[in-house]
């Protein structure tokens, strides 16, 4: 049984077949890595599933329900959350506010305009707890725009996680940070994800990270799925090695 299934999903930008008849799936409680060279269509696939853009064809099923034409809001309610390739945060709000706002939104409390947000201690406690899970408690009062790149990456994930999703899409959570910082970030993310039993689909270029942290790997190339298998299978897959990893990229 799959948590999410796309059937024959298509998105073209003019002549660019960004997503070309893709059948993609995510199982419950798995950490999946989505790999592929630049322009392979990874982000576009996530954009389609999260509702940022509309497909030209095909269907998206989430927990056996057709969400192809559902609004972004509806998909979030159903349990799909995402982060962004270029960090997308509320920069003038503190790190804690970023998470708390998300919880207010999840709880349907952002319609409350005649009560002080500060009065809802349950929300702030949960927000603090989430920051602690991601090792960001020391940055709680700092503006999101002012923390370091690695912390921004984690905060971006923490915000998506605060929606209590069933499926979390992370678009390159370690891009733009130093090689040394990648492992701690992935450790944090995967331990949070695994401890709550949700699924995560992580777009990632670094093959060390991909092989170390994922249960399954899906490789994309020019809008289509090239391979799908366990890290061991992918490591031995000739097509993937020649088209994606090349001779120098593999560890």
């Amino acid at each position: 049984m799959s948590l999410l299934v796309t059937k024959d999903l298509v998105k073209w930008f003019g002549d660019t077949h960004a997503v070309d008849h893709v059948d993609f799936s995510v199982k419950p409680s798995e950490v999946l890595a989505l790999i592929g060279s630049n322009g392979a269509g990874k982000t576009t696939l996530v954009n389609l599933i999260s509702g940022l853009i509309r497909p030209d064809g095909g269907r998206i099923l989430f927990r056996d329900r057709d969400v192809t034409h559902q609004s972004v809001h509806g998909r979030i309610k159903a349990g799909i959350a995402r982060s962004f390739q270029l960090v997308n945060l509320f920069d003038q709000l503190t790190a804690l506010d970023n998470v708390a706002l998300t919880i207010f939104s999840r709880e349907g409390k952002t319609t409350h305009l005649a009560t002080f947000a500060s009065a809802d201690s349950a929300v702030w406690d949960e927000a603090s707890e989430i920051l602690r899970l991601f090792g960001l408690e020391a940055k709680a009062r700092m503006l999101a725009g002012g923390v370091s790149q690695g912390e921004r990456k984690l905060l971006d994930v923490a915000v998506a996680y605060a929606l209590r999703p069933k499926l979390l899409f992370l678009d390159e959570p370690t891009s733009g940070v130093s090689t040394r910082e990648k492992a701690p970030i992935m450790d944090t993310i995967t331990s949070v994800v695994r401890s709550t039993g949700i699924s995560a689909a992580i777009i990632e270029h670094d093959m060390d990270v991909v092989f170390n942290y994922s249960d399954r790997i899906v490789a994309m190339h020019q809008g289509t799925i090239l391979a799908d298998g366990t890290p061991d299978e992918i490591r031995r897959n000739e097509t993937v090695i020649t088209t994606l990893i090349g001779t120098t990229g593999a560890p």
Partner: peptide, 28 residues
């Protein structure tokens, strides 16, 4: 003062800072 410090007021500031992300944390 109450409005800008309410959850609603926070949602407005989120929209101001980042419209796309606001939508993706469920703010319509």
């Amino acid at each position: 003062w109450v409005i800008v410090n309410s959850p609603f007021g926070m949602a407005l500031q989120a929209i101001r800072d980042n419209e796309t992300r606001a939508e993706f944390v469920g703010v319509r």
